[in-house]
Design a protein around this nucleic acid. Structure first.
Ligand SMILES: NC(=O)c1ccc[n+]([C@@H]2O[C@H](COP(=O)([O-])OP(=O)(O)OC[C@H]3O[C@@H](n4cnc5c(N)ncnc54)[C@H](O)[C@@H]3O)[C@@H](O)[C@H]2O)c1
Ligand SMILES: NC(=O)c1ccc[n+]([C@@H]2O[C@H](COP(=O)([O-])OP(=O)(O)OC[C@H]3O[C@@H](n4cnc5c(N)ncnc54)[C@H](O)[C@@H]3O)[C@@H](O)[C@H]2O)c1
Lengths: 213, 213
DNA sequence: CTTTTAATGTGAAAAACATCACAAATCTAT
DNA sequence: ATAGATTTGTGATGTTTTTCACATTAAAAG
């Protein structure tokens, strides 16, 4: 299969948009409307679906229920996705309080921290435990996915702990490049850099507009 | 200039890594070491720099100070970047409390919300104001950059307000495709989708490993 | 000073990715 | 039932991005 990160992101966006269409009472959709809803093109949509063996009916478009079901399968939405969080600071607490994950079938089962002041807080029914409980917890619950909300300085260490415990994929918020063994995935979301990106393109626009005007 | 989002993200990562190298006492660096530090290749590094007219010395590598200075210029680090935040909920509060932005020359000047219970809180010297104060505030302070931490349902409306006030680039956390006029930039960070991405690739790895083993 | 060594800078080549365009399919109207 | 309209699915084509490879240059060694 010939897929990349962007392609899978588009799958998530399709699913997201389809759920909204469904909520509005639609039952069928054409590639061009779906494309509009996610900011893409109809041929991109059809190509993506074709890649995953998702087929509609010519002239009839795609059945929304059918599409959602297939996207659910691809994105692992048919089983509950169990996740652990390390670092119950500002970001970690925001994630734990967020209702959107459980709506998407993602469940943060526990949070882990080294600061005893954070232990035994319980928010959204998620408990904060000492870091040394992470390894047994992950093994007991057979958890494959982790979130890193610890400071940059601790990120590699905690990632190593997670991997040793059996975690195979991590969403990382620390602004640092992490190393992990082959077969493991790290997806780093670096908000500083995302903002810098916006700033760059705003400045770039300003310059070219100046020239154009 | 022929640059894209990924390219600019790499610029941010180079700068980030270079600051660490500098902190360790280095003053020169070769493209291959920088590549290792950010998870890229030496030719990618050189190509990127060449695109921006950044040159080193053959056989001598790049001067770190010099590189950082040029990246600062490209990424707008030589002036303070003023930002407003809309939505002082879980995510908004985490962003306001985060120390890392000001370290990077990014300053959230104020937060705006519609919930009166949030008004006049002051964290990190950032005040929470009623949403209808956003427009005059943005105009008065000549702010170009916004962050959207409001619920999905409000995101497009608040974005429109921001754009009307003069905001030209937005970092959006709501899991929805936003429309904005040409000349404006929206960068959406959708944490649900980022996690789904990790989940997808973990599952994909598991399957191919099963086949290989 | 000359030679050797090693890193840059960049066209050229390759790979990855997106768009086009149209045959095939199937729905709708008559 | 047939014709006409419209959308899919996909090979062909185009574009963008990355990698290769090597001439060029500058540091270091002799
Ligand atoms: N908060 C934000 O808005 C924001 C924005 C961008 C990036 N980040 C990044 O996200 C990460 C977390 O940021 P934050 O603002 O929540 O920081 P924070 O300091 O509020 O929280 C960090 C938490 O991690 C815990 N911790 C420290 N070392 C640990 C370890 N070894 N094991 C387990 N827990 C440990 C601390 O006790 C603390 O509770 C950082 O890497 C930061 O750079 C945060
Ligand atoms: N918290 C997370 O970890 C997280 C994760 C992924 C995505 N998100 C997204 O980030 C956004 C914010 O999430 P959150 O968890 O902080 O939600 P939240 O409900 O905690 O906060 C939303 C805030 O926006 C305010 N608000 C509502 N309508 C507004 C309007 N029209 N103008 C100004 N303010 C308004 C509310 O009063 C509230 O303070 C949402 O779109 C959510 O989907 C959050």
């Amino acid at each position: 299969m010939h897929t990349n990160k962007n392609c899978i992101q588009r799958m998530s966006r399709y699913r997201n948009a389809l759920n909204r269409f469904k909520g509005l009472g639609f039952s069928k959709i054409f590639s061009n409307y779906l494309a509009d809803a996610v900011g893409s093109t109809s041929s991109q949509v059809r190509k993506d679906f074709s890649l995953f063996g998702i087929y509609g009916s010519k002239r009839g478009g795609y059945s929304i229920d059918c599409l959602i079901e297939q996207l659910n399968e691809i994105l692992g939405k048919n089983e509950l996705q169990k996740v652990v969080l390390a670092g119950f600071g500002n970001m970690g607490a925001a994630l734990v309080r967020y209702k959107g994950f459980s709506k998407e079938g993602i469940s943060i089962l526990a949070a882990f921290d080294i600061d005893p002041a954070k232990y035994n807080k319980r928010i959204n029914n998620i408990e904060v435990l000492p870091l040394d409980r992470l390894q047994p917890f992950v093994q007991e619950h057979q958890i494959k996915i982790g979130i890193l909300g610890v400071p940059e300085i601790a990120a590699q260490h905690v990632l190593d702990l997670m991997v040793a415990a059996g975690i195979r994929g991590v969403l990382n918020f620390a602004p640092i490049q992490l190393k992990c063994p082959a077969g493991c995935v790290v997806n780093s979301v670096t908000l500083e850099h995302e903002l810098e990106n916006v700033i760059y393109f705003v400045n770039a626009n300003e310059k070219t507009e100046g020239v154009a005007a």
